[in-house]
Design a binder for these strands. Sequence first.
DNA 1: CGTGTGCAGTAACAATAGTTACAGAAGTAC
DNA 2: GTACTTCTGTAACTATTGTTACTGCACACG
Lengths: 210, 210
Amino acid sequence: MIQDLKEQYGNIFEEELINEIVQVGTFKEVPEGYKLIEIGEYLRGMPLLISGVIKILREDEDGDELLLYYLEKGDTCSMTMACCMGDAKSEIRAIAETDAKLIMVPIQKMEEWTTKYKSWRNFVFNSYHVRLNELLSTLDNIAFQKMDERLIGYLKEKARVNQDDIINNTHQEIAYDLHSSRVVISRLLKKLEEMGKIKLHRNYIKILDL
Amino acid sequence: MIQDLKEQYGNIFEEELINEIVQVGTFKEVPEGYKLIEIGEYLRGMPLLISGVIKILREDEDGDELLLYYLEKGDTCSMTMACCMGDAKSEIRAIAETDAKLIMVPIQKMEEWTTKYKSWRNFVFNSYHVRLNELLSTLDNIAFQKMDERLIGYLKEKARVNQDDIINNTHQEIAYDLHSSRVVISRLLKKLEEMGKIKLHRNYIKILDL
DNA sequence: CGTGTGCAGTAACAATAGTTACAGAAGTAC
DNA sequence: GTACTTCTGTAACTATTGTTACTGCACACG
């Protein structure tokens, strides 16, 4: 845990803070698909991501889903931080997109460290900043783009975070993430295939030239 | 300026911080429609809103607009804060929805005060928190609601921030805010009128029972 | 090797939103 | 008053997205 932590956060947190994190944090290794946070759930800790990718989803009262963004190594969940200050109930769902390693820090420490460590303060501010912009960009996509463009963006982003030109998802799963329906996604994917941008297979999609 | 500031922020900022704000901040009074921040513009200061309402808009590369949310008294612009830490260019446009009074604080002070004053730290964190949730709620509206529901929400919110059952806007202006077209908005407004929820007039709309 | 299950392809249709075009009403300027 | 502009109402049409229904294929499992 210590070497993982140092590798990922050593150059942004001071030694003393790293030591504190090691003392109070708990190391967690989760498999792909593991649900880390559920909507409405009370949060016990704040995650520091060491490796892997976490996807953050929003859901409305009818159960309709929407992918907000991915967390990658070195990221933390600003939503969690936001929750720690407010009503403490999660507004989002977090699912491991790949196998992931992370450190859970008790939320009580958050404010203490904010006072004590400049590097922690900067980290928290920076996380908010990055997340706010990420959310803004997600909003742009939904507000200004049509489904075909959103789909292309989705495939690109997914390939990027997973470092893989193969998208291991069914059309139904993609439809959930984009808050659309399976038939619509199949239709658009077919078009992309006809344009030579992707190659469709059962349970996976190969990206050729997006 | 001092009495305004104390009235609005006196119970959250300590005396010393208030004094600093008075020293380095500049008081600004702007009329309705005044453009406070433009997209891509470099930010000189961070606004603390004393009175009035500011609307925050997003725009894509084609010039299509979208209303994100309103700032009310006691709010500050988290986007601005986010900018101060990042590339400093504004991601959004800010327009005075009503006549407004505000205090502009030089962005250099932001980090200094973050270290120095706990109340300032909390204020900044809290602003981020509120804005993140606001943005999330905006995203919910766009992603999960249809235009008629969004329109109702828009009218309600506008009536709330302006404390007025009269919405002083043309259909075209509403269409811009919701990133739709005038004809669509006119059509939906007519339906709402037929349902007895509103009464339409030239240049304004009276809300009856939304 | 047949059967069941889940996935993908496709057609036909419905609903929603956006576009174009035009007419008339309300207000403004002269 | 007349001329002009702006705002609203409406029709007709297109585009996009969503829905329902049915097909066949691939794969797993006995």
